[in-house]
Amino acid sequence: MFHAGSGGTGVGTYDHGDDRSPEKRQYTVKGIEAETVTLMRSAANKEGMKIGSWVSLRMREAAERALANGDDCSLTKQADLKLDNAVSRMAAVLERYERNVEARLVVVERELHEITSSQRSILSALIQQRSE
């Protein structure tokens, strides 16, 4: 069906875009490398398909993905912007939380220091009373 270098000829399906059923049409694909043709034949055989059907299916899938990706591009950019904004807001919240935690730790450390200092003073007084 395909010949490397000179391209290839086969039968494809043509859809009129209306209610009529698609018709098979002759087509030519030129400039396909011999190695690519061999790979396509192997892939088609592996799936139990003729190479023309396999190529047609894969080209259709690729075209649909390419068209869908074009529409999704702006949606992806919008989603990326929303994600960036959310990450920025979350980073700001985490920074505030970190500052609050740090301030609370300073207070707790100060209170613990006062408690331990008082306990040392009490313990020293008790030890001094016992030794008298």
Rank of each mutant, 00 (worst) to 15 (best):
E98T: 00
S6A: 11
E61M: 13
T13V: 10
L126P: 07
A91Y: 01
L67H: 08
V107T: 14
C73S: 13
I115Y: 03
Y97G: 03
I32G: 02
R20E: 08
G17D: 01
G48H: 03
D19S: 12
L123W: 03
A92V: 01
F2I: 13
A92S: 05
R130I: 13
G31D: 06
G17L: 04
V11N: 05
H16G: 13
Q129M: 14
G17T: 03
V11C: 09
V101K: 02
V87C: 01
S131F: 09
A66K: 14
G31S: 12
R110D: 15
V11I: 14
A68N: 14
K77W: 01
I122D: 08
S42H: 09
V11E: 01
L94F: 03
M49E: 01
S88H: 10
M90C: 10
V108R: 08
L57C: 11
S21I: 06
Y97I: 02
T28E: 11
S6W: 05
P22Q: 09
R60F: 12
V87F: 00
E23S: 13
Y14S: 09
L81D: 00
L75E: 02
S131H: 10
A125I: 09
D18L: 04
L81Q: 00
V11Y: 02
G10I: 07
Q128S: 14
Q129K: 14
F2M: 07
K30P: 07
T28A: 05
Q129E: 13
V55G: 02
L57G: 14
G10C: 14
S21P: 09
D18N: 08
D71K: 06
Y97R: 02
A63Q: 12
T9V: 14
V11M: 11
Q119D: 04
I32C: 05
Y97V: 03
M40W: 04
A125D: 15
A62L: 13
M59R: 11
L39M: 04
V107S: 12
V108P: 03
A91G: 05
G52V: 14
G7S: 06
S121L: 13
E98F: 01
G52E: 07
D15L: 10
A44T: 05
A91N: 07
S6V: 09
Y27T: 10
I32N: 01
D15V: 15
L123F: 07
R25T: 10
M49W: 01
R20V: 15
T36Y: 04
S56Q: 07
S21L: 04
I122S: 10
V87N: 01
V101A: 04
T28G: 07
V87M: 02
L75M: 06
F2Y: 09
D19H: 08
H113T: 15
L75G: 11
R41Q: 11
E61T: 14
Q129P: 12
M40C: 13
A68M: 09
E114D: 15
A43R: 01
K82Q: 02
L123C: 14
D84E: 10
V55D: 03
S118P: 06
K77G: 03
A91L: 00
N45Q: 06
T13K: 04
L94G: 05
E64L: 11
S121Q: 14
T76K: 00
D18P: 00
R58A: 09
N45F: 05
L105M: 10
R58C: 08
V87L: 01
T116D: 13
A34T: 12
I32Q: 04
Q129S: 13
V29S: 02
R65E: 12
V37A: 04
K77I: 03
